[in-house]
Design a protein around this nucleic acid. Structure first.
Lengths: 332, 332
DNA sequence: AAATATCAGTTAAACGTTTTCCTTGTTTGG
DNA sequence: CCAAACAAGGAAAACGTTTAACTGATATTT
């Protein structure tokens, strides 16, 4: 492993017999050149395999044409889709998107962001993070946006309203005739409280029971592990809402292998509308939280902020109920 | 949106009444200090909200403590898992991992890598990329590793052997008694040829038919769209292998909604062993290609290269057959 | 007590760019 | 032809750090 030290603008200048300023202008296409010089530059660059060191460039210009996105968990398809949306818009506008995965660990986010910040023109963070970190972000010289539910009004946040999402689902399920609700939440997520509020807002007036459970991580496996806790109770719910689609799918699977008929013995619904939810058996009822659109919108907003200010308004996307067979049950 | 210009080491030095060198040594913990100075530094840094500009630091040290990973498609759970594995190892060794998504577009990879390269100490690329890009990578001063199948022996590549993967699956399916094989490939992937070779290697000696089809992208939807083409033929295969689990799941779903009983009318198998494959109905037989381990191993290797050279050996991981119900059929 | 080592801190060069003036030579207009 | 305008290129400062070499003190060894 030799490290050949890659060629700098200085090497090019020397080889072409011009000043470094000229090379800089040439590679940035900022001026016209005599054919002789142009030819020599082309050749020198080609020979040396020169390419700009964007680090050095960023240092002096203060611009990186890159945007950073810190995401809770890349293995969660919801976030993959957010990334997809963001990436498309970024690329279309000449920016690069660098993604970092915080692996559900809020604690580790600070160093991650500190590493990311100087390398980017703007930051997107997909989580509610501790106050000291938001404070630090605030006094950064860069635009920052959050994904999730609007919380503070001095920062841009894009997402669906968790209360509304939960209420939407509850409303439909109540109308379907379900009588005993279970909710398998993820209490470590701050929006868990909002989801609960949304559920209660509908269920209490309707006089419907709500049993609350908790998973230790928002994954298939955790849902699967937790399912028995709720299914084997004497007062088993007739419908169970998962913190997200992954949890719901995990629970549903375990239910079926315990011999329950879904949705007849027990129904399931999730939240997020990840792509795979269509493909499980039975297909999962869920709420679309516009994952990809979220990514697109937040990226558009942050690019606007970077390239000079439209007022940063929070943007709440409209969730949409996706009705599939996992809750399609005739009540007699 | 004011951009307050964040404080530099110089501001701290001035405020604390010391030289910038002292500040630098302080923040890097390279020396001991008199209590007086230490206190002033602490205070100045706190007041100003100073944090190191890692860009400038990287410029002079030549080290970024970051590693870049360019991945074909983050929405594909196989890659999410690779990222997960890589991220864990990176974090454990004090590196940050920056992920970029090339969205299945080999053409766009060059600018992505050019942006990523100066910001990182090493690069991992999860695709076979055009020769001009590999050449460019080769004359970079950074360690580079590839994910996939070893191809050139002067670069480090980690992955499972596509020929072996396909052969493993074929072998099992032949033993199961399947007689007419379908393969829904993704011909735009270079390893498609290897997969085919692996299949033929087993199927031809066994005197088993092989029908070859092609999807336009390696996704659920594409599999679903393509399914009818193979299912509605008069000489319909009795088992269909998907390019990956996503394609297989898409096809399987479409088969079921066309009224086929899986695995009795037609069986399905995938490749990758993505997490969700356990949860579809019927659970999908597949080949585990060690997604997460791949990420872990390649990251370990590249860190070793960065921190000085063990010889870069290619590493081929052992694929493992995962037998589930989607191919469990009794032949009479 | 002299010689030496250690400690705390400073100076200045370097990293690879961009960019703001300059300089020179050449064209153009009147 | 003379002045003014322009075109092509250069010199040098700046971006925010690190680090080797240096300077005085103070502490340790003989």
């Amino acid at each position: 492993m030799k490290r050949p030290k890659r060629p700098t603008i200085r090497d090019v200048a020397e080889k072409a017999g011009v000043s470094i300023a000229t090379v800089s202008k040439y590679v940035n296409g900022q001026q016209s050149f005599s054919p002789a010089v142009e030819e020599k530059l082309r050749e020198a660059i080609e020979d040396l395999g020169y390419s700009q060191n964007s680090l050095a460039r960023a240092m002096v210009t203060g611009r990186t044409t890159a945007i950073g996105l810190a995401v809770m968990d890349l293995a969660n398809p919801h976030y993959s889709n957010v990334v997809k949306g963001a990436n498309r818009v970024a690329l279309a506008n000449g920016y690069n998107l660098f993604v970092v995965d915080m692996e559900e660990s809020i604690a580790a986010v600070r160093p991650l962001l500190e590493a990311l910040a100087p390398r980017t023109d703007g930051l997107i963070v997909s989580a509610r993070i501790p106050k000291d970190v938001t404070d630090w972000l605030a006094e950064l010289d860069k635009p920052v946006a959050f994904l999730g539910q609007p919380e503070r009004d001095d920062v841009l946040t894009v997402g669906t309203d968790s209360v509304q999402v939960a209420a939407l689902l509850a409303q439909y399920l109540v109308r379907q005739g379900f009588k005993r609700f279970g909710y398998m939440g993820y209490s470590r997520a701050p929006s868990n409280a909002d989801r609960l509020q949304g559920l209660r807002q509908i269920l209490e007036p309707a006089g419907v029971e709500l049993l609350i459970f908790d998973v230790d991580e928002p994954t298939n496996e955790a849902g699967e592990r937790a399912a028995a806790r709720v299914l084997l109770r004497p007062d088993r719910p007739d419908v169970i809402i998962g913190w997200n689609d992954l949890v719901a799918i995990g629970m549903m699977n375990e239910a079926r292998s315990l011999g329950f008929k879904v949705p007849f013995d027990v129904a399931f619904a999730g939240i997020d509308n990840i792509p795979i939810s269509r493909y499980v058996t039975p297909p999962l009822t869920t709420v679309d939280v516009c994952s990809q659109t979220t990514g697109e919108v937040v990226m558009k907003k942050i690019i606007a902020m970077i390239e000079e200010k439209p007022q940063p308004t929070d943007l709440t996307l409209e969730p949409a109920l996706i009705i599939r067979e996992s809750t399609q049950r005739q009540f007699t």
